[in-house]
Protein backbone atom coordinates (compact mmCIF):
# COMPACT_ATOMS: atom_id res chain seq x y z
CA UNK A 1 0.00 0.00 0.00
CA UNK A 2 2.74 2.40 0.96
CA UNK A 3 4.66 1.57 -2.20
CA UNK A 4 1.68 2.40 -4.34
CA UNK A 5 1.24 5.73 -2.60
CA UNK A 6 4.72 6.95 -3.50
CA UNK A 7 4.97 8.68 -6.82
CA UNK A 8 8.35 8.15 -8.40
CA UNK A 9 7.89 9.67 -11.85
CA UNK A 10 7.52 13.35 -12.49
CA UNK A 11 4.06 14.71 -13.22
CA UNK A 12 3.30 15.13 -16.89
CA UNK A 13 1.07 18.17 -16.39
CA UNK A 14 -0.83 17.35 -19.55
CA UNK A 15 -4.08 18.99 -18.61
CA UNK A 16 -3.02 22.58 -18.26
CA UNK A 17 -5.70 24.10 -20.41
CA UNK A 18 -8.69 23.91 -18.12
CA UNK A 19 -11.11 26.73 -18.80
CA UNK A 20 -9.45 27.64 -22.11
CA UNK A 21 -11.64 26.81 -25.13
CA UNK A 22 -10.14 24.96 -28.10
CA UNK A 23 -9.74 26.71 -31.41
CA UNK A 24 -11.76 25.54 -34.43
CA UNK A 25 -10.25 24.96 -37.90
CA UNK A 26 -12.10 27.85 -39.49
CA UNK A 27 -11.85 30.13 -36.50
CA UNK A 28 -15.58 30.66 -36.36
CA UNK A 29 -16.40 29.83 -32.76
CA UNK A 30 -17.63 33.01 -31.10
CA UNK A 31 -16.44 33.83 -27.60
CA UNK A 32 -17.60 36.52 -25.23
CA UNK A 33 -15.08 38.63 -23.33
CA UNK A 34 -15.60 36.47 -20.27
CA UNK A 35 -14.87 33.26 -22.18
CA UNK A 36 -11.98 34.74 -24.14
CA UNK A 37 -9.97 35.52 -21.01
CA UNK A 38 -8.29 32.43 -19.52
CA UNK A 39 -8.78 31.64 -15.82
CA UNK A 40 -5.28 32.74 -14.88
CA UNK A 41 -6.20 36.24 -15.96
CA UNK A 42 -8.93 36.59 -13.35
CA UNK A 43 -8.10 39.71 -11.42
CA UNK A 44 -5.86 40.92 -14.26
CA UNK A 45 -7.97 41.41 -17.37
CA UNK A 46 -11.32 40.20 -16.08
CA UNK A 47 -12.98 40.45 -12.72
CA UNK A 48 -14.62 37.83 -10.50
CA UNK A 49 -18.19 36.72 -11.00
CA UNK A 50 -18.84 36.58 -7.26
CA UNK A 51 -18.17 39.67 -5.21
CA UNK A 52 -18.17 39.22 -1.45
CA UNK A 53 -15.96 39.69 1.57
CA UNK A 54 -15.73 36.08 2.71
CA UNK A 55 -12.28 35.54 1.22
CA UNK A 56 -10.70 38.53 2.90
CA UNK A 57 -8.34 38.04 5.82
CA UNK A 58 -9.99 37.09 9.13
CA UNK A 59 -13.43 36.82 7.52
CA UNK A 60 -15.45 33.65 7.75
CA UNK A 61 -18.39 31.92 6.09
CA UNK A 62 -16.52 31.23 2.85
CA UNK A 63 -18.14 27.85 2.38
CA UNK A 64 -21.67 29.05 3.04
CA UNK A 65 -21.29 31.92 0.62
CA UNK A 66 -19.87 29.69 -2.11
CA UNK A 67 -22.63 27.10 -1.78
CA UNK A 68 -25.25 29.89 -1.80
CA UNK A 69 -23.70 31.30 -4.97
CA UNK A 70 -23.81 27.91 -6.64
CA UNK A 71 -27.47 27.58 -5.77
CA UNK A 72 -28.26 31.08 -7.04
CA UNK A 73 -26.47 30.39 -10.34
CA UNK A 74 -28.44 27.19 -10.89
CA UNK A 75 -31.71 28.86 -10.00
CA UNK A 76 -31.16 31.83 -12.29
CA UNK A 77 -29.94 29.68 -15.16
CA UNK A 78 -33.03 27.52 -14.88
CA UNK A 79 -35.46 30.39 -14.48
CA UNK A 80 -34.03 32.52 -17.27
CA UNK A 81 -33.55 29.57 -19.56
CA UNK A 82 -32.30 30.57 -23.05
CA UNK A 83 -32.41 34.18 -21.94
CA UNK A 84 -29.06 34.67 -20.26
CA UNK A 85 -26.50 36.30 -22.50
CA UNK A 86 -23.70 36.43 -19.94
CA UNK A 87 -22.62 34.71 -16.74
CA UNK A 88 -24.58 35.34 -13.59
CA UNK A 89 -22.75 37.92 -11.51
CA UNK A 90 -23.45 37.85 -7.79
CA UNK A 91 -22.52 40.85 -5.72
CA UNK A 92 -23.10 41.01 -1.98
CA UNK A 93 -23.42 44.17 0.06
CA UNK A 94 -24.00 43.62 3.79
CA UNK A 95 -26.78 41.05 3.86
CA UNK A 96 -28.14 42.05 0.45
CA UNK A 97 -27.52 39.93 -2.61
CA UNK A 98 -27.46 41.67 -5.97
CA UNK A 99 -27.71 39.41 -8.99
CA UNK A 100 -26.86 40.99 -12.31
CA UNK A 101 -26.04 40.02 -15.85
CA UNK A 102 -27.16 40.44 -19.40
CA UNK A 103 -30.36 39.06 -20.92
CA UNK A 104 -31.30 38.63 -24.55
CA UNK A 105 -33.97 40.92 -25.91
CA UNK A 106 -35.69 37.68 -26.59
CA UNK A 107 -37.41 38.07 -29.98
CA UNK A 108 -34.83 35.82 -31.52
CA UNK A 109 -35.12 33.28 -28.77
CA UNK A 110 -38.04 31.25 -27.59
CA UNK A 111 -39.93 33.92 -25.74
CA UNK A 112 -41.65 36.86 -27.30
CA UNK A 113 -40.22 40.25 -26.46
CA UNK A 114 -42.98 41.04 -24.04
CA UNK A 115 -41.37 42.93 -21.16
CA UNK A 116 -44.11 41.68 -18.82
CA UNK A 117 -42.60 38.20 -18.88
CA UNK A 118 -39.21 39.53 -17.89
CA UNK A 119 -40.70 41.53 -15.06
CA UNK A 120 -42.58 38.49 -13.88
CA UNK A 121 -39.47 36.30 -13.92
CA UNK A 122 -37.43 38.94 -12.09
CA UNK A 123 -40.07 39.44 -9.42
CA UNK A 124 -40.59 35.71 -9.06
CA UNK A 125 -36.89 34.94 -8.62
CA UNK A 126 -36.36 37.87 -6.25
CA UNK A 127 -39.23 36.70 -4.06
CA UNK A 128 -38.28 33.04 -4.04
CA UNK A 129 -34.55 33.59 -3.58
CA UNK A 130 -35.07 36.00 -0.70
CA UNK A 131 -37.22 33.36 0.98
CA UNK A 132 -34.67 30.64 0.38
CA UNK A 133 -31.63 32.66 1.42
CA UNK A 134 -33.35 34.64 4.19
CA UNK A 135 -32.03 37.97 2.97
CA UNK A 136 -33.07 40.65 0.46
CA UNK A 137 -32.26 39.73 -3.13
CA UNK A 138 -32.17 42.28 -5.93
CA UNK A 139 -31.88 41.54 -9.64
CA UNK A 140 -30.44 44.15 -11.95
CA UNK A 141 -30.36 42.93 -15.53
CA UNK A 142 -29.49 44.75 -18.71
CA UNK A 143 -30.75 43.67 -22.12
CA UNK A 144 -28.70 42.82 -25.18
CA UNK A 145 -30.55 43.11 -28.48
CA UNK A 146 -28.48 40.68 -30.46
CA UNK A 147 -26.50 37.55 -29.77
CA UNK A 148 -23.63 38.89 -31.87
CA UNK A 149 -23.23 41.90 -29.59
CA UNK A 150 -21.62 39.62 -27.07
CA UNK A 151 -18.94 38.37 -29.46
CA UNK A 152 -15.49 39.53 -28.50
CA UNK A 153 -13.32 37.07 -30.38
CA UNK A 154 -13.65 34.17 -32.77
CA UNK A 155 -11.43 31.16 -32.41
Amino acid sequence: MIKRGIQTTSCQCKNIRSGIPKTTPFKNKPLSYEEAQPPYRIGVTKAWNSWNTSNLKDEGKTGETTIDDMFIRRFVKGTFHYLLASEVIIKRRHNMIIICGLLFGSYQQRMSHDPKKYYFLIGYSEELLSHFLKCPVKMEFSVVTDKNDMVFKKI
Binding site: I89, K91, G101, L102
Partner: peptide, 10 residues
Protein backbone atom coordinates in the same frame (compact mmCIF):
# COMPACT_ATOMS: atom_id res chain seq x y z
CA UNK B 1 -22.86 48.27 -24.30
CA UNK B 2 -23.04 44.53 -23.50
CA UNK B 3 -19.96 44.80 -21.30
CA UNK B 4 -20.05 42.41 -18.36
CA UNK B 5 -16.87 43.82 -16.83
CA UNK B 6 -18.62 47.09 -16.15
CA UNK B 7 -21.46 45.25 -14.42
CA UNK B 8 -19.03 43.54 -12.08
CA UNK B 9 -17.07 46.43 -10.66
CA UNK B 10 -18.69 48.48 -7.91
Amino acid sequence: YANTELLKIP
